[in-house]
Computed example of a mutant assay.
Amino acid sequence: MFNKQEIKDGVKEYGKRWLFPDFTNKVTWLVVGAGVTILLTPTPLKVLFYNWVLDTANLNSVGHFTFADLKPDSADYIFGAVIIVAGLAHNILNRYFLYKEKTITEQPTEAFSPADKLLFEKFLAEFPSNSSSIHMLKHHDWGGSFNMDYLNDMEKFVTEWNTLEREFHSEELEEKRKSLWVVCDDFLTKLSLGAYQLHGPMYSCIPDLYRGTDNWPQHVDVKLKELSDLADQSWEMYRDFVQFGRKQFRC
């Protein structure tokens, strides 16, 4: 059985062919040919043809049909010209739509430079998906304590990847890099302002007064939610950037 998409595509394809036939199609030639025939056929021949049609009809019917006197054939010329113009206009419109469709479907994909590929590989080496930074973004509960050193890869990205030398030639790839950098920078900035050192590299986002309890002010919940949302957003943008780059460079 056909699915809904196949039925929809079939109706669309055959509908387009019926509404916009190719000028090489016999039906199109028949329409234009009829117009040319009306223009070129002299009135006496038209009279002979019409009389033949009426005589044929009278032979096979009880009544007797007659044909009114022909009026000046200027109306026939206009009608023939309209048919020809309509046929040609129809074909031109068809050619236009085919051209636009071909332009869209055959639009060349953006060419990525070898320099972009090298830069992307450098990014993966310095900020890999199996790093402790990415693991924290994906899984850490920011209401608990954490080791700040686990975010070193992310901090290195924020520190070093906002320079001209780290920009991609590809506009789309560069836009994704900038978006990732902005959200990572925002996350680390808010984390540094809202974290309290416990000992060594260990930190917590819960103030000393409330640590160890679940009874803390609302502003602490707001801060934890903001950090959690930024961590999720950083991970999603990281994943989008890496998947897009790997797809383009096939790496």
Rank of each mutant, 00 (worst) to 15 (best):
K178P: 02
E6P: 11
T28D: 06
E126G: 00
T37D: 00
L48M: 14
T103V: 07
G212D: 02
T109C: 01
Y238S: 00
E155V: 13
S61G: 06
A111C: 02
D73N: 12
E13Y: 15
E126S: 01
E121C: 07
H219Q: 11
V220L: 09
N60K: 13
T213E: 01
V158I: 09
A125E: 11
K16C: 05
V220E: 06
L227D: 07
A57Y: 11
I38L: 15
T103G: 01
L70D: 02
E167F: 03
H64D: 12
R246F: 03
L70S: 03
T41L: 15
T24L: 11
Q218H: 12
K26G: 07
E6L: 13
V220T: 01
V27P: 00
A195P: 03
F65S: 04
D208L: 11
T66I: 01
A195W: 04
V220G: 02
K117T: 00
V158N: 09
M1D: 12
T28Q: 08
L193H: 15
D116A: 01
W52I: 02
N152T: 08
E172T: 09
T103R: 10
I92M: 09
G15E: 05
G200I: 05
T105Q: 04
D185T: 06
G33H: 01
I7L: 13
A231V: 03
A231S: 07
D149A: 02
K178T: 00
E175M: 00
T189W: 10
S228C: 01
T213K: 10
S113I: 05
I104V: 14
N60L: 14
N152G: 04
R166M: 12
E6V: 09
F187Q: 08
E172K: 12
H135W: 08
L173I: 05
K102H: 07
F112G: 03
M148L: 14
Q197C: 04
M237D: 10
D186M: 08
S228Q: 15
D141W: 05
H199A: 06
D9N: 15
I7Q: 08
L54T: 06
C184H: 12
E121K: 14
Y77A: 09
E165A: 14
I206E: 04
V53F: 13
L88C: 10
D116F: 05
H140W: 11
Q218T: 06
H199L: 08
I206P: 05
L59W: 13
D240I: 06
Y77W: 07
L118E: 15
K100Q: 14
Y99G: 03
